[in-house]
């Protein structure tokens, strides 16, 4: 039992550290940044409800919905649709659509002024 206990403690500590990192790196606020291939392509204010498509060409898309200060991918042409299953988020771990290399991250709006386009 003793030889297991050490590892149980190590792995529990690792989980705790990870949970703390998730909490302290969470900069949730009133805006969201949508990135494609790691580059921010669009900034969305979450205080107004809206819906729009991110057009990826070749008929590929992610449909983004903003409602009550939360953001979600409500439809997508990707094969696994994990991004859609995430539902509405207001912070925490970003939505990621791996097949489309698209991420949606809720932020406090700071540090993303350099977002290009629109």
């Amino acid at each position: 039992m003793k030889k297991h206990l050490l590892w149980i403690i190590i792995f529990s500590a690792l989980c705790l550290i990870c949970a703390i990192i998730i909490l302290i790196t969470d900069r949730s606020g009133g805006a969201a940044v949508i990135s494609l291939n790691g580059e921010a392509i669009r900034r969305v204010e979450l205080d107004e409800n809206q819906e729009f498509d991110i057009d990826l060409g070749d008929g590929e898309f992610n449909h983004i919905s903003v409602r009550d200060g939360k953001i979600a991918v409500t439809d997508a042409s990707c094969p696994d649709r994990l991004c859609v299953r995430r539902g509405y988020i207001s912070g925490g771990v970003p939505i990621i659509c791996l097949p489309h290399r698209l991420t949606v991250e809720v932020t406090d709006g700071g540090g993303v002024d350099a977002v290009t386009g629109r």
Binding site: T25, S35, G38, P94, I96, R101, T103
Partner: peptide, 8 residues
Amino acid sequence: IGPGAAAY
């Protein structure tokens, strides 16, 4: 998708 993936 870039170094942002490390956030996961």
